[in-house]
Amino acid sequence: MTASPTPRDPCPLRLDGVVKRFGDFTAVRDVTLTIDPGEIFALLGPNGAGKTTLIRCVAGLARQSVGAISVFGFDTVTEFRQTRRLLGLVPQELNFDPFFTPHQSLMIQMGLMGVTPDAAWADQLLETFALTDHRDAYTRHLSGGMKRRLLVAKALVHRPRLLFLDEPTAGVDVELRKDLWAEVRRLREQGTTIILTTHYLEEAEELADRIGVIHKGRLLLVEERDALMHSRRRPGQALLDLAAPLDQLPEGLPPGAELRRGGRQLCSPWSDPEELERTLRRVREVARIIDLQVERTRLEDIFVELIAEAEQR
């Protein structure tokens, strides 16, 4: 068998009332969620929120205590052969087999996934993830970032239609992180649906079409990234560097505006572009602006706020 099964349902993933308990402890509480075909979905949450546990349930590494999970319309428990063939997983924990080289690892994983091993495809994957130079090295001699890239390559050997990336950029340097995200975008363009977790929230903000926030096993919110950024948006801040120091604030600036650095910098909140324009005009009447920085609300700010709200409840 080389071809992957034809989806029974276009929906890549459906979670229906999923609960996962470990003894008395409940790691995932009643999660219901539908993933759209071809989207990049970021699952965010603090340490121990239940992200990995949820992913493990989908991949068959764990079994939910209650509820049902389906991948492209196949049930992950009763039709695991179909679901596992359709999904790929980059696990959070580095794991590597010291016996095999990167090329061998990819060939073996292809076979295990039920795909006839194809050496050229393995080489192409190594090339994509900048591992060609280490094709025949001992895996234990790879650096941490290389091992993680090998894990991503391994997750792609069977060309999955649904890909889980559980903190794929932990320990990967800036440049390769950018490459990795470019690769993720390319996969999405080819029709792969992607679910990722990361603690680098700027990555999620940049990449994700939708964002889900999970806290203590409960899904707090699922929203389109743009809608979330808009609805939760707080006043931004404009930082104006002035040519000469000011003694006092110009008249008519929004409340909260203040002078810093001995009057050389003016910091003013803004909530819409017109307000920012008015501020700039006022300041320019009394001083020359030599630099301007505008800060918008970041996903990180929204995330911190959401978690704080959830803690209070």
Binding site: L61, Q82, R84, L89
Partner: peptide, 17 residues
């Protein structure tokens, strides 16, 4: 060994009965 070092995962996520 593969259970302890985590490489059993490769087998567990594969469509193998």
């Amino acid at each position: 060994q593969s259970k302890i070092n985590g490489t059993l995962l490769d087998v567990l996520i594969a469509p193998l009965g």
